[in-house]
Design a protein around this nucleic acid. Sequence first.
DNA 1: ACAATTCTGTTATATTATAACCTAAACTTT
DNA 2: AAAGTTTAGGTTATAATATAACAGAATTGT
Lengths: 159, 159
Amino acid sequence: MTQNVYKQHDHHSCVDEALTRARRLCEQNGQRLTPVRQRVLEMVWANHKPVGAYDLLPKLAEEGFNSAPPTVYRALDFLLDLGLIHRISSLNAFIGCNHPGEDHPSCFFVCRECGKAQELDASLMRSLATKAEQDLGLKVEQQMTELMGLCPACQKEAS
Amino acid sequence: MTQNVYKQHDHHSCVDEALTRARRLCEQNGQRLTPVRQRVLEMVWANHKPVGAYDLLPKLAEEGFNSAPPTVYRALDFLLDLGLIHRISSLNAFIGCNHPGEDHPSCFFVCRECGKAQELDASLMRSLATKAEQDLGLKVEQQMTELMGLCPACQKEAS
DNA sequence: ACAATTCTGTTATATTATAACCTAAACTTT
DNA sequence: AAAGTTTAGGTTATAATATAACAGAATTGT
């Protein structure tokens, strides 16, 4: 079951599991999880907030990695291709995927206060795609949904 | 009823209606549909393809308008605020809205071949938001969905 | 007519992303 | 292990998208 990022959880194991999944997925696909790629993935998973490409550059630099834009974009593109991360278009930012490997629509809620993003169940998205295909004869290949608003904690603070 | 942009239609009346709705909406809200704003809206409606801000600049220049980025972004922001256009985040582009005034999620299909975008019925989006609010206690304030794929005509050409 | 507000002009710059070309590392075949 | 092939990374430059900040003009309200 997809966890709730707005509740307390063992975040260390969160990241661990993401890395384990990543390693397995790379192996299955004959891809290499190189040091830059792995560190970028870990950084994306640092908290549950979508992270911008240019936020990663200085962090990579600190660790002695090369830090020009192409480095980070290549790593991000690699992770996107494998489905290990999603891109949040409305924020120009990237977030870890909870169930890579399974082909699925990108569907997130982002809290406008704390910035944390929760991946949502995408079954309604699939229905939407099916409906569009049936009603209008479209062929849907990709889809993304982004919701914005307040998470439970930030609603309380606002009141 | 929302029309189907992938079928032949009287596009002139398409634009006309959009302008009429815009004028009415501005009046209702005490806003001014100035020349730049109106031309930008017309240009966004020129065809059913999402248009980038920087595509508009030279067109405005041709017509003697000032053409620096802030000019077009201001007009676009104005139109967005009134709900007369939507932003397609995954394309950094803008498209006319079929039913401005009614507050509704942005929900589009974009054909990757011909580039035309069709606004879709957003009721399933609303269900998704409601579900997220009920299940996770979120407060959804905005939402957008973008589907990509092939429209009926472009599917035929591909075969 | 005056003040207040809204809109536009202008310059500069921030932010996000990619092109192009070259070097290095890793796999592959013998 | 050597040679060839593929894949990944380094580097420089630049493209594409978006906003800040401030001044001046037009419009609105009184």
